[in-house]
């Protein structure tokens, strides 16, 4: 069923792609073009949510042998702090906080091959493809200076230590399944059809997600396509969350009353026996 659906959608995609490419023959000839879609555009988090598996599928017009595909999915950004543990008086204490701005709550890369084999360092860095290439801004620790006559050089007060902080961020988020890199996660089927599997872990943050699909040829991305995904709480979970944030006083009272009621009920039930 799922497979059949996928195939029909793919066929529709290809036909639209072909007509789109066929229409303007005189225009600047593009080497390749991508169409892509997700198996679902909205992920609803309900009470039984245990993560979700998504399939991103699509087609590439002008696909050549040796081309590679990378899919990058980014979740909603928020500020966070990373602290280093240091030993003092025999115990480990969180010290030296570094604040990072606008860090993606979810970051996943799937690709046909290991990233460093398919793209040049600068191409990967420029498009922020790969866990090592995610741009992490720590505004308090960096400033712009003129160095060796070059203006606006970004300098970090932390020096090489910033690398440890960046690695820690990826590592800790990685443990929760929130920062993942899966070489081989994209399969090219035939004739430029491809599909990628994405895994949203149980700790997936809610918000707007963006998926970027890149086509790599000779180490450079030559085409890209952006699609959107919405992860949101639904049903009772959403109602509870909204209630807790919009009417915190009422919510607190309800929590207290429910617990008192539960305690009273327990005392009554077990007294009879």
């Amino acid at each position: 069923m799922m497979r059949a659906l996928l195939l029909t959608s793919l066929l529709i995609l290809i036909s639209t792609l072909n007509s789109a490419l066929a229409a303007p023959p005189d225009e600047l000839e593009r080497e390749a073009d991508i169409v892509a879609a997700l198996s679902q555009t909205t992920v609803e988090i309900r009470s039984n949510f245990a993560g979700a598996d998504l399939i991103l599928f699509g087609a590439i017009a002008g696909f050549q042998d040796g081309d590679d595909v990378a899919v990058v999915v980014r979740g909603p950004a928020s500020d966070l702090r990373v602290m280093r543990k240091e030993r003092s008086f025999g115990i480990w204490i969180n010290r030296a906080p570094v604040r990072f701005e606008e860090v993606s709550g979810y970051y996943a890369v799937a690709s046909t091959r290991p990233l460093k084999d398919m793209g040049t360092f600068s191409a990967l860095r420029r498009n922020q493809i790969g866990r090592d290439h995610v741009r992490l801004n720590a505004p308090e620790t960096q400033r712009r200076e003129t160095r060796f006559g070059v203006r606006d050089v970004l300098v970090s007060d932390l020096g090489s230590e910033i690398v440890d902080y960046r690695e820690a961020l990826g590592r800790i988020k990685g443990r929760a399944g929130l920062y993942v890199e899966t070489p081989g996660g994209v399969t090219i089927l035939e004739g430029g059809l491809f599909q990628a599997r994405l895994r949203l872990p149980p700790a997936t943050p809610v918000g707007d997600y963006v998926a970027d699909v890149y086509l790599f040829r000779a180490g450079q991305p030559i085409a890209s396509r952006q699609i959107y995904l919405d992860v949101r709480k639904a049903g009772l979970e959403r109602a509870i969350y909204d209630h807790a944030h919009n009417h915190p006083h009422l919510y607190g009272l309800i929590c207290v009353l429910l617990a008192v009621f539960a305690g009273w009920a327990a005392a009554e039930i077990f007294r009879r026996r």
Binding site: S78, V82, M83, D164, A168, R171
Partner: peptide, 11 residues
């Protein structure tokens, strides 16, 4: 792990 993430931004 020698590092720890502390979420600061209120979602």
């Amino acid at each position: 792990d020698m590092f720890e993430i502390i979420q600061t931004g209120v979602k």
